[in-house]
């Protein structure tokens, strides 16, 4: 087991004096094993990025545990050698004062000081080509001189320069055109066969489906359904999962609103507390969407 989240909860205090709080993540448990892509889907504000930040140690969890290879996940140079994150908004990862390719130099300085400069330059260029960037077009430019999709790919290229075992990818393909997106996904799929584990946060269900072995569906901070991707997509048990699937824009069809579900599988099977394992490896929460 590589990454394991057990009963992870995160509360944020909000307001000027921290008087109120929001529960962004609620008792979430799942694993990511080497060579596996797990996609994390759910509505806006459901806690996806928060989970990503917790895994990367950028925020502490309020309760529960997150372990990587058996040890508690803790921010730091050693941890980041194996675990990298790429975030929703690529601009926030760049310092506007410096050229964008400084992100590569920083990796070299911290992790590969002994690698000779020409060899390093070669690795950077190869990594850029892997994400379909033309090195001559992007090296030596400032962040504002690059388009959103170009910056996003620069960050993917940076993560690939490290010998990472786990990548937390938060909406990394959402700003890429369909063709570049497929190239990046195929690249992730290739890395996966070499043992990389990926937590692929996405709202694009067709992309999640294309790539992921397992899917976790999140709503209001809690898991409503999870299991093998073909089970979750092929036989969605939770009304929220069905709603998501019906909202996917399809090229040749109009949107249809899903039929309401009147019975709750969870209660029908007499489950209580936690998720119901409806079939092996396929878990579902109560359809009431509130705790019961």
């Amino acid at each position: 087991m590589m990454l394991r989240l057990q009963d992870v909860t995160k509360e944020f205090r909000i307001g000027a004096f921290g008087g109120k709080s929001v529960t962004a993540v609620r008792s979430v448990s799942f694993d990511v094993v080497p060579g596996e892509v797990v996609s994390l889907i759910g509505e806006s504000g459901s806690g996806k990025s928060t989970i990503g930040r917790l895994i990367l140690g950028l925020n502490p969890a309020t309760s529960g545990s997150i372990t990587f290879d058996g040890r508690p996940a803790r921010a730091g140079k050693e941890y980041y050698r194996h675990v990298q994150g790429i975030f929703q908004d690529p601009f926030s990862s760049f310092n506007p004062v410096f050229k964008a390719d400084r992100v590569f130099t920083m990796i070299k300085e911290s992790y590969y000081p002994a690698v000779p400069e020409p060899e390093w330059a070669g690795r950077v260029r190869a990594s850029l080509r892997d994400v379909r960037l033309n090195p001559d077009q992007v090296l030596g430019k400032y962040p504002h001189q690059l388009s959103g999709g170009q910056l996003q790919r620069l960050l993917i290229a940076r993560a690939l320069l490290l010998d990472i075992k786990l990548l937390v990818a938060d909406e990394i393909t959402s700003m890429l055109d369909a063709s570049t997106r497929i190239d990046v996904l195929n690249l992730l799929a290739e890395l996966k066969t070499r043992g990389l584990g990926v937590l692929y946060i996405t709202h694009d269900l067709s992309l999640g489906n294309y790539l992921a072995e397992r899917t976790v569906v999140l709503r209001k901070g809690g898991v409503v359904e999870m299991g093998p991707t073909d089970a979750v997509f092929g036989d969605p048990l939770h009304p929220y999962t069905r709603e998501l699937l019906s909202a996917v824009p399809r090229l040749h069809e109009e949107w249809v609103d899903p039929a309401p579900v009147d019975s709750c599988l969870y209660h029908a099977r007499g489950a209580s507390g936690g998720l119901l394992e409806a079939e092996p490896g396929h878990f579902v929460a109560c359809a009431q969407l509130e705790s019961c």
Binding site: R132, A178, S179, R181, I182, D183, N186, L205, N209, Y210
Partner: peptide
């Protein structure tokens, strides 16, 4: 070509590889 590279729900890497 752009339209051809769109994954519709249901297409999986393991079964059919789309090309950019």
């Amino acid at each position: 070509l752009l339209l051809d590279s769109l994954p519709e729900v249901g297409v999986r890497y393991a079964e059919r590889r789309l090309e950019g």
